[in-house]
Amino acid sequence: MVEVKNLTKRFEDHVVLDDISLDVKKGENAVVFGRSGTGKSVLLKCIVKLLIPESGEIIVDGNSIFDIKMKDLNELRKSIGFLFQGSALYDSMSVRENLEFPLIRNKKSMSAEERQEKVIKALQDVSLEDAINKMPDELSGGMKKRIGLARTIISEPKLILYDEPTTGLDPITVKEISQLINDLQKKLNVTSIVVTHDLLCAQIISERAVVLNEGKIIYDGGLDELTTSNDEFLKDFFTNENVQAKNRSVNGK
């Protein structure tokens, strides 16, 4: 579904992604780990051509995204969902309008009744049907993530990219959101790439882990093997993550 080949992306002199390759099969869920600033979000943005790399190729659903025309890219984008780190809800629109926005523009043949049904269904999926007429600034962080998730799934994408879906949330909400993502993935049978540094979230969502460090993929394999790895960096990284998760859990209580 997603093939990343020899991708290099730099910002001025700083190389963020250094000749990385990754292959995510149809129906697979991959979690991308890494410390802050290692290029995890940059990788996701390259996959949807929000950023253009210096070299390399990305093939999504058989289309080389840097070679196709804008019109074809937009067609492809209609089959991709992207959950942004800060949810990126349109703050001048209500929850209903936020969810209707991609439908009105991309599914022009859909009637108003059908749209209404889809909006309610998506909100039911994230257990927030009561928030339909609220504005984004009336929602909590966790609610925004849920609404963002509802907007992501409403167009029934084949591929979903999650950029730090649980950052800034308390441990209970992290668990809820992760469980929700997992349930939706099973229900909708989509391929997904989840960028996170939250071990709890990763354990709920996926079995495959990819670790990025200093622009390179240093691990690509099972999540269980990763957490028990003897590699110094990985041991250090996951010890810190576990400590932080425990701290968050204690503070959350």
Binding site: L50, E75, K78, I80, F82, F84, Q85, A88, L89
Partner: peptide, 10 residues
């Protein structure tokens, strides 16, 4: 990232 979100949704 609202502008990016718009672009990603075609």
């Amino acid at each position: 990232e609202q502008i990016d979100a718009m672009e990603v949704s075609a």
